[in-house]
């Protein structure tokens, strides 16, 4: 299983990771080894099966909660861990440029 540096860079971009060059090369090497190993799955006969996304074992799940208001976390508590906040908002670097008048 060959993975190119371009592929690693593309995956990292999708995953919002910014890898240093040496790190990207190490990850490329590890992913090649892991993907070669998981190729064992291609030999399995899985005909007649449905993809399993949830191992519930058929157990009954609880009824949905009643549609009633309950006290929430509150803005102050929700913002307490934020690296930057203002008023009732999380602050992030500007994403929209202001039009000069």
């Amino acid at each position: 299983m060959n993975i190119s540096r371009e592929q690693i860079d593309r995956i990292a971009e999708l995953a919002h990771l910014e890898l240093a060059p040496a790190e990207a090369e190490a990850m490329r090497h590890d992913l090649e080894a892991i993907l070669s190993y998981v190729a064992v799955l291609q030999q399995l006969d899985t005909s007649g099966l449905e993809p399993m996304s949830h191992p519930g074992g058929g157990a009954p799940l609880p009824l949905p909660r009643r549609d009633e208001t309950q006290p929430g976390l509150g803005a102050a508590a929700a913002l307490a861990g934020a690296p930057a906040s203002g008023g009732q908002c999380f602050k992030v670097p500007r994403v929209i440029e202001r039009l000069e008048s």
């Binding site: 990292a12 992913l31 399995l44 449905e50 993809p51």
Partner: peptide, 24 residues
């Protein structure tokens, strides 16, 4: 990175869906 790869377009069926079938 591995998880992003197996879910990415073009690889989803070969890896993620096949793994869900293997899980079954």
């Amino acid at each position: 990175l591995l998880g992003t790869y197996v879910l990415s377009s073009g690889y989803y069926d070969a890896y993620y869906r096949k793994a869900q079938l293997a899980r079954a």
